[in-house]
């Protein structure tokens, strides 16, 4: 009985936490910024630190993943004599799964953790209180541009990742393993569908973007403002963000590609 009550209490705490996080993000976005020019400026700054600074890691990992995928795919497909379909394998796995998922995981590690740490540090150094005391809403000033920048960047990065992966795969399979580039492209184009593959991948990336950025800014804003608390919040962002991505990926994949 006692454990049941504890479970119930835990459940309500959990519901409350979800509610707080929901209200938090709603307030950040829907309290419209006062000055348009200023908010564009803030957004550009965040797009820079969230997007541009993640660009290189995304291109490099995308290229390598594409190269590895071609090597692996080639060795298996060659057994069936259909090594020409390596382009098809590459494109489908990148667009549907690896592009959005790996980008999101890298994003959680690279941009998510730095968002949490930055906001946490702003809280610890009383910058957030300071905004508030100046009559400026820290949600719209600090949180909103970071959240929006994250939601814009991740889908773009995921596209860059997939494109880099396909180019990497092209280099390996056509340039090195000797697949004919005509069949590489034509088999790829035959099997890849714009709606089901590219757009679905993009939707996945968008959902992941909302999840990760939300977790990151919320953890930063709610962290215990000490060096230990910031460290913990940063870890939580990466762990929760990655888990959320993988769980959401399963749900989305089932919804998008599940009806065979």
């Amino acid at each position: 009985m006692k454990s049941l009550i504890a479970l119930g209490a835990w459940f309500f705490d959990w519901l409350e936490a979800i509610g707080r996080a929901g209200i938090f993000i709603a307030q950040s976005i829907f309290r419209v910024p006062v000055r348009f020019g200023e908010s564009v400026n803030l957004l550009v700054r965040q797009l820079y630190s969230v997007g541009v600074l993640s660009f290189v890691i995304i291109v490099v990992s995308g290229t390598f993943i594409g190269m590895v995928l071609s090597l692996q795919g080639y060795s298996v497909l060659a057994k069936f004599g259909s090594e020409d379909s390596v382009g098809q394998l590459l494109a489908l796995s990148l667009l549907r799964e690896l592009g959005p998922v790996v980008t999101a995981l890298l994003f959680a590690g690279r941009a998510g953790s730095s968002l949490t740490a930055e906001i946490g540090l702003m809280k610890a150094t009383e910058q957030l209180s300071s905004y508030e005391m100046m009559g400026v809403d820290p949600l719209r000033r600090v949180i909103a541009p970071r959240f929006i920048a994250g939601v814009i960047c991740l889908p773009l990065l995921s596209m860059v990742f997939s494109a880099a992966g396909i180019i990497g795969g092209l280099l390996v399979s056509v340039g090195w393993l000797g697949v004919s580039d005509g069949s590489f492209w034509s088999l790829m184009q035959q099997s890849v569908n714009f709606d089901t593959d590219i757009l679905n991948g993009l939707i996945k990336a968008l959902v992941f973007a909302v999840a990760i950025t939300w977790i990151a800014v919320y953890q930063g804003y709610e962290c215990v403002p000490t060096s230990e608390g910031i460290g913990k919040a940063t870890t939580r962002t990466v762990v929760l963000g990655s888990l959320a991505v993988l769980a959401l990926d399963f749900v989305l994949t089932a919804a998008m590609f599940g009806d065979f």
Binding site: Y48, G51, A91, A163, Q189, F194
Partner: peptide, 23 residues
């Protein structure tokens, strides 16, 4: 840099759409 980033992202999208899906 932000501008180039966005343009590159969109180019990647167009590239995927045209070259990869044959749209």
């Amino acid at each position: 840099l932000v501008g180039s980033f966005i343009v590159l992202g969109l180019l990647a999208f167009v590239y995927l759409a045209v070259q990869v899906s044959g749209l």
